[in-house]
Amino acid sequence: MKAIKNLLVPQFIDALAKDMHLLAPVKKGNNVYFKTWQSGMELEWRRNSFLPPKDLFFPQMDLLYKYSILGQNGEIQELTQSEGPRAIVGIRNCDLKSITLLDKVFLSEGFEDPAYRHRRDNTVLIAYNCSKPQPACFCTSLGINPQGGEGADLVLFELEQEDLGKEEKFSGPGPDYGIEARTPKGEEILKKQRDYVHDTHKKAVPFQQCPLSFGTDGILEKLQEMFEHSLWDDLSKRCLRCGICTYVCPTCHCFDIQGKNAGEEGFKYRCWDSCMFSDYTLMAGGHDPRPTRMERFRNRFLHKLWFYKERYGEFLCTGCGRCLSKCPVHLDISYVAGKIKEAVVDVR
């Protein structure tokens, strides 16, 4: 197996950043963001990013085109991004999975979103396999292997440290990282950076158990009988109807297209939208098919656990735990799924 010495990791990333735009998890305040790598930055492995990597393929704010009005005529300038090659380091398996789920939305069923396609094709994914879960993780409940590296070009993982005695373990440089290529793109990078890599017999640190779990068996069938269930009223009472869960979710993908005009010029943009907001389903004539927080709340979970699964064969959740750790009132999908399991359905 190939490995990189702990102290060589920043240099390895520096070397990668010479060839392409490199994004890596960096701490800013208490949150971790995928930021453009600059030499001397400090990598943050301990915690997953605040915003999921969906932001890098389907940004919260994406400019589409700008226009100017010239008398009777107008001019339109496309703003479709043509970015050079880039790599994202440190994507965890929950987020890797989310990218494959978003691929189905943006790249399948007869239409390809050009901006998404472009960003997807020019990006190398360098995964980070988890050995330690975070307090709100439950990816294994969704059938995800936190050390699988599926969909990545390259995979990094923590290696077991030699037994140095407890004290030295904490004062030492930290663990070395195993590295494994999964695609030809990954092989190429590994070959090019071979100076940083050595052979090792050390083993990968095994994954500790996720702190949370829930069963998904039969949940879709049960939900199909639960559209009018009183459970939605009870659960949604706690919801603040803010947009946190939808924005930090690696799989939520609703957007709005809006314009901004100033005098003779303006631009159109695509931005994230949230089904929790009261104007989300408001129609031009004033009718709203989801008039209260109950309908909005229900829709979000039905989309995750029913509608998406019916259309694409998988649940629209990867167990990253962001909705639990960021929700101000801790109303997350694992809790809701548990309540759905407990609910008594009156079969008429």
Binding site: P135, A136, P211, L212, D234, K237, R238, L324, V329, H330, L331, D332, S334, Y335
Partner: peptide, 11 residues
Amino acid sequence: GQLPFYSPPAF
């Protein structure tokens, strides 16, 4: 709540 250090609102 879901975890020992979460105490969410209850009705």
